[in-house]
Each structure stands twice: as structure tokens, then as C-alpha cells.
């Protein structure tokens, strides 16, 4: 399942919890960013969106394809607001966020990447919804 609604400044998608759907969502986001004139600044929005979706699908919904992930992206000049919600039980985001990443481990970098590359990261109290804000630096296309 992959549903999509889009307008010039809003992109909404709901899809089943398959990792391949992250690639499809990223493709749609790349098209959206091109449409708002931000093609050359797409890397960081694409990266943090992928991280939020990886967490939602793997940790939130445990790759259960019967469960879906909803995301919305709103462009407000000059920033993007990214909202990702899963059907999972949530997690103790405050404890996880304060943990240091172990450089020798082959996992555990997703949250750190979201923190580093977004201006704001906010979870709901349950921990199954994340809102990310990323600002575009001054740069002419």
C-alpha cells in the first residue's frame, strides 16, 4: 500500500512498513524539493526523512507490513516541517536521545543524524510520532 497526496507546498504519504517504500517516499520528496526550487539542497532533508522512516518502520512497526507509516511534509519558506507517525508502542525518546553513540557499533546512528541535521526535533509523549524542522540555508539555485 502506498497512498500519496501532493500540492505545491504539501506532500502527504501513507504506506505499509516495507523498507522499499522508504526509497519511493524519498523519490517523491526529491521531486517535491525540485518543485519548490531546492534540488541543490535536497541531501539533508532526504537524509533526515529517511532516518525518521527507518525508525518508524523498523523500530516502531517492526517491519510488519500490515502496519502503516504516515508522513507529511510542509514547505514554509525557508523551512520544511516533516512529520512521521508509526503504529508502534513508542519508545523512551528522551533516554535514547541523551545516549552517546558508540563509534565502533554498526547501528544506532539514526537519531544522532536527525539531531545533527535538523534545527528542531520533537517527539510526542508516546514516542511514535516525530516532528522535524529543517531550515534551508541562504543559497541561490
Amino acid at each position: 500500500m502506498f497512498d500519496i497526496q501532493k500540492s505545491a507546498k504539501i506532500l502527504k504519504m501513507t504506506f505499509s512498513s516495507a523498507l522499499q517504500n522508504i526509497d519511493r517516499a524519498a523519490d517523491e520528496l526529491r521531486i517535491f524539493l525540485t518543485g519548490i526550487g531546492k534540488k541543490s539542497q535536497a541531501f539533508h532533508p532526504l537524509l533526515i526523512t529517511r532516518e525518521a522512516l527507518i525508525n518508524a518502520i523498523t523500530h516502531g512497526n517492526h517491519c510488519d507490513e500490515k502496519k502503516s507509516v504516515s508522513m507529511s511534509i510542509v514547505y514554509q519558506p525557508e523551512q520544511l516541517e516533516i512529520d512521521v507517525t508509526d503504529e508502534g508502542k513508542g519508545f523512551s525518546w528522551d533516554a535514547t536521545m541523551s545516549k552517546e553513540c558508540d563509534d565502533t557499533q554498526d547501528h544506532g546512528r539514526g537519531l544522532q543524524i536527525m539531531k545533527l541535521y535538523s534545527q528542531q526535533i520533537q517527539y510526542n509523549s508516546k514516542g511514535n510520532q516525530v516532528k522535524l524542522t529543517i531550515k534551508f540555508p541562504e543559497k541561490k539555485e
Binding site: L47, R50, I54, D103, Q105, D106, H107, R109, G110, I113
Partner: peptide
């Protein structure tokens, strides 16, 4: 290659290890 995500970074670390 235009994108490497956290899972991809993990593959590099695992291979290095």
C-alpha cells in the same frame, strides 16, 4: 552514489570491523 543513510554507515563500520 548520492545517498548513504545510517544503516548504510553501519555496513561500512561492520566491514571495517
Amino acid at each position: 552514489v548520492e545517498m548513504v543513510d545510517s544503516v548504510g554507515l553501519g555496513a561500512f563500520i561492520a566491514t571495517h570491523n
